[in-house]
Design a protein around this nucleic acid. Structure first.
Lengths: 120, 120
DNA sequence: CAGAATCCTCAAGGATACTG
DNA sequence: CAGTATCCTTGAGGATTCTG
């Protein structure tokens, strides 16, 4: 406690996956299996764990459709949507970094994705 | 490789300490011992390790003053300075989070610190 | 003062199998 | 489909000691 807001944010959105999950959900609600497919390298256990934690922090919402086979949709809450500027600046710096290293062209698809949903 | 810029950024500025170190250096160059004191909870080994990694990525610069006792100053490079917007959005979201939880008042000092150096 | 060198712990993360 | 339940590994991070 008595931490600065930056620390608070970092403690909440820590780990390898949370920001990537949030990035996926910026495009709109997605199902568990969709997330599992679009986030490369994650496995079911990790995805479940991270989703639960994000839910507990009030960043995402979990909506269960009572049907068989089950359908569960995850979406950003208002608080979660407010992470958009963070994603944008992280993205922009990533581009700067790539430029500064002289490497390029390898990030096209993610960039466009974020541009489309740019609200600010 | 072929990662999106967000992933690239997160991979580079990962771990528990890097953002906090960068935050300290936004106020201007600082000595090793200063950083060691102002970053609560870090120890020498970790500080050294993180500084080396940040240096290797071109985010900070290390300046040695050849004297006894030794003096070493760390500062942000241009690339490092460009992380300012990220720090700001992380900070802003932290404040939002605190508001949404109804907790407050415990972050005053860090906030002012960042306002002073706000360049954007 | 600014570190290098060791040693150690634990928890984040991963692999796999099973289920309503 | 959307998860649990186990078991396991690795390395991030920590504590301590020594030094030019």
């Amino acid at each position: 406690m008595n931490e600065c807001p930056i620390e608070i944010t970092l403690n909440i959105i820590s780990g390898k996956w949370k920001f990537l999950i949030i990035k996926e959900l910026i495009d709109g609600p997605k199902r568990f299996s969709q997330l599992n497919r679009s986030i490369k390298g994650i496995n079911q256990r990790m995805l479940t764990k991270q989703l639960r934690e994000l839910e507990r922090e009030g960043i995402i919402e979990r909506k269960v459709y009572p049907q068989i086979p089950p359908k569960v949709e995850y979406s950003l809450t208002d608080l979660g949507e407010k992470l958009h500027p963070v994603l944008l600046t992280l993205h922009q710096w990533g581009v700067e970094y790539i430029k500064s290293k002289g490497v390029d062209t390898s990030y096209k698809e993610c960039e466009t994705k974020l541009q489309f949903t740019q609200k600010v």
